[in-house]
Design a protein around this nucleic acid. Structure first.
Lengths: 343, 343
DNA sequence: AGAAAAACTTTACGCGCGTCAAGATTTGGA
DNA sequence: TCCAAATCTTGACGCGCGTAAAGTTTTTCT
């Protein structure tokens, strides 16, 4: 291969002995041509590495095969991991995924949406920043481009939402902790970036009420996406003040918990469920690093696979349906308690 | 804005009262037209949100404004962070960065290179997988597309390399550790994924020799990019066997060290430089999580900023030079020792 | 074997923009 | 004020491919 220099489909068609429109048909769907024709084209492809010009292709299609994937913060391995899974599924389905991260900034999220408009994607999978999102711009975008939201919901925006069931997360952690020791207080940011945090707080109240226990929430200061640092600094203060109402802390998410554990370690507080332990700490997300914390973190896991799968499936349905779904569905997957050493 | 529906540059030109070729000129470089003309065009842009069709643009350019960014493993926050910095610099310079991750797999890296060829990028910033890379394919790619390697070097491939100076990393850590306690043994994977690991081992030998100390290397088993797990499992074995030759361990990189610390914690070994500590552990990279380990990790930091900056600058020079540089340069930035609690 | 169906070839146009050439207009400087 | 330089307009072609229409060949099925 690589002998000839083919400049366009015309030349390639001549080389293969098949007419250009048929070759074009082949590249759109290899199964749409007769097997014997397909063989001749593929034989020709062995002799040169011709590939159709994607810009010319996309210019003449109303819709491209591009799929935009937008996450709020790619430096969080949680998003990197789910983006990876989504990416692979799009490729397997013959689409061209393009990954974007807003890096926690509204301005960047807006720029990404603008870029995506230019790309004329067949569809977009969007995990919005949440509180920091420019709601109107996201809404306007979703009205133009077939979009499925994932991870973080914005009511009424996008053709569908797929995510994890925050109530399932929190009810499991709260029930487990209450059953095996002191009921937990809830440790979170005062102004969380992500709307899931609000749902988790609500679920905490609800579950504590159901169990007949008194809820206690600790709100810490901090802005942005440096959750570990915010969690550590907040924990330092709480431990300094000795203001923890219980010996059991349920963090809103694993990244805060990672910071909490760091603060505990600094103060020489032993965390875990053993006898010599001063505290139990648990959390939610099953962050990729949570199995390597000290102690390893008891948490509640997202069903990554299902969320990625269903997000992509829903987007494909949306694309096949011409960009609209009969109604906006919200799919929530239950979580799974992961017992480790910290609680 | 958003009143009119503009379908192409022809219509937009009519609306703005400027001829289409001049409008085209404006979009290629707003400063290439007379200020009064620019104002009229930009006034028209207020009334409608016209943007040129990028596919039509790129079809008629030999080179696009795209820049490919390829990293080996995006779920590693180190790469996410450096990709972010590179991305922002490209955008600031008017380019379109497109981010790809090989997710540790050769097949994916090859696919990415194929995709990039189709994108006709102005240039590519490539951090190759390293040992797992398909050397010939990477070489063939770099011969076609102006490419700057970063982070991980492959001798002779690409127009330039920009990365960190592994000798600087290791000499600083070894000297510090030897000066303040027992000299370190070197903890690494037997078959490291990344060529930097080999350079670090060599630097360890060299530095130990210079200091007149006997080098001791611990090689652990494991394949792939789950370094934390590999490090933890390797450490478990070493601690179980009591086969550590010294009380000071220098890990090849932070992710191995994170696993090492987890294993120490499991066994109740106190890590740090204090009196009650059984072990000192240090490492290299200043991974974003290394400040939140227990104890926080003494490490040697990449000069992220300089590496990102110089990579991008070098690529821009390459692009301006028409895709070739006078000679292949290798730029190595020194590292910076970061003292924390673990050593 | 014959006819209908399927797949192909030929021819041609259009997509939206880059870019060139020739001529008209505006600008800046003496 | 006048001229050269800079900038603009007009008109036209080409990029590589999608896609439609009309006619031809091949396949499939009875």
């Amino acid at each position: 291969m690589g002998e000839q220099k083919i400049r366009n489909m015309e030349e390639f068609a001549a080389l293969s002995g098949i007419s250009r429109p048929t070759v074009s048909k082949y590249f759109n769907d290899p199964n749409s041509v007769r097997p014997s024709t397909r063989e001749r084209i593929e034989a020709a492809l062995e002799h040169c590495d011709y590939r159709p010009n994607i810009y010319a292709i996309n210019q003449n299609r109303r819709l491209t095969k591009n799929i935009g994937i937008v996450v709020p913060f790619l430096a969080d391995p949680f998003f990197a991991e789910i983006a990876r899974q989504i990416e692979q599924r799009c490729i397997a389905a013959g689409f061209w995924p393009i990954l974007f991260s807003a890096h926690g900034q509204q301005e960047l999220e807006n720029n990404i949406l603008d870029s995506l408009r230019s790309l004329k994607p067949a569809g977009v999978l969007l995990a919005p920043l949440g509180r920091a999102s420019d709601r109107k711009k996201v809404e306007a975008f979703c009205a133009e481009v077939p979009t499925v939201l994932f991870d973080s919901n914005i009511a009424g925006i996008g053709e569908a939402f797929v995510g994890s069931d925050n109530f399932s997360f929190v009810s499991q952690s709260v029930e487990y902790l209450s059953r095996t020791g002191e009921p937990p207080c809830f440790f979170e940011m005062r102004t969380p970036a992500n709307p899931n945090a609000n749902k988790r707080r609500a679920a905490y109240f609800k579950t504590m009420e159901t169990l007949g226990l008194e809820p206690r929430v600790i709100k810490i200061e901090g802005e942005g996406w440096s959750f570990e640092e915010i969690g550590r600094d907040g924990a330092r203060r709480v431990l300094e003040d000795r203001s923890l109402p219980t010996n059991t802390v349920l963090c809103s998410n694993d990244r805060l918990a990672i910071g909490f554990l760091a603060a505990c370690y600094e103060r020489g507080l032993r965390v875990g469920r053993g006898d010599g332990c001063a505290l139990r700490v648990a959390s939610h997300d099953d962050h990729p690093f949570s199995r390597f914390t000290c102690p390893s973190l008891t948490t509640v896991a997202h069903d990554y696979d299902s969320v990625a799968n269903r997000s992509v499936e829903t987007l494909f349905e949306l694309i096949e349906g011409g960009g609209r779904l009969p109604e906006r569905t919200e799919t929530l997957f239950p979580a799974r308690l992961v017992l480790r050493a910290s609680a």
